[in-house]
Amino acid sequence: MAAKTEARLEERWREILTVHARTLGEIDRALHPYGLGASDFEVLDLLATATPRDGEQCRVQNLVGRLHLSQSALSRLIARLEKDGLVERSLCLEDRRGVYVRLTGKGRALHGEVLPLQRAALARTLGE
């Protein structure tokens, strides 16, 4: 009985990985003409939908837990988005180790342009 349960879990896990890979590939293909990948979009989307309290900004550290990237990979991705003029980084004055990140006008506009493409890719791969 335990072997059957284990085999079902293993099969379900592989199904999840297959859907994940297929979905990322679909998003990457849809966003490639805009110079974005799935992870790039996720950062833009989180920043676009984040609603920090008045006067607060989004800390990079807060994004790490919401994305499936290491701290260093996220830092490199944000540096690339900043180089492309899509986000701005600033240091936290209270904690010099902290870094804030926010969308620029260009980043917000690009996010709005590609959002329907990303959502359509999700619908194609995850829709009922």
Rank of each mutant, 00 (worst) to 15 (best):
A2W: 06
K4A: 06
E6C: 03
R8G: 10
R8E: 14
R8I: 09
L9R: 06
E11R: 14
E11I: 02
W13T: 10
W13E: 08
W13N: 10
I16H: 06
L17Q: 13
V19T: 12
V19P: 05
V19C: 05
H20K: 15
A21K: 15
R22G: 04
L24C: 10
L24M: 09
L24A: 14
L24V: 11
G25L: 00
I27Y: 00
I27Q: 00
R29L: 12
A30R: 02
A30K: 02
H32A: 12
H32V: 07
P33S: 12
Y34T: 04
Y34S: 11
G37F: 01
G37Q: 07
G37E: 06
D40K: 04
F41C: 06
F41G: 01
D45H: 14
L46V: 14
A48G: 08
A50E: 08
T51N: 09
E56P: 03
Q57M: 08
V60A: 03
N62P: 05
L63T: 10
V64K: 04
G65H: 04
R66T: 11
L69I: 09
L69M: 11
S72N: 13
S72D: 13
A73G: 08
L74A: 05
S75T: 11
R76G: 05
R76E: 14
L77P: 01
I78P: 04
I78N: 11
A79E: 13
R80Q: 13
R80A: 14
L81H: 02
L81T: 03
L81E: 02
K83H: 07
G85P: 05
G85F: 12
L86F: 04
V87N: 07
E88C: 09
E88A: 13
R89T: 13
R89A: 07
L91P: 03
L91H: 11
L91W: 05
C92E: 12
C92L: 15
E94A: 03
D95A: 12
R96L: 15
G98Q: 12
V99H: 05
V101Q: 08
T104C: 06
T104H: 07
G107Q: 05
R108H: 02
G112P: 04
E113N: 07
L115E: 08
P116C: 09
P116Q: 08
L117W: 06
A120Q: 10
A121I: 01
A123E: 12
R124I: 04
T125I: 03
L126M: 10
G127I: 00
E128S: 12
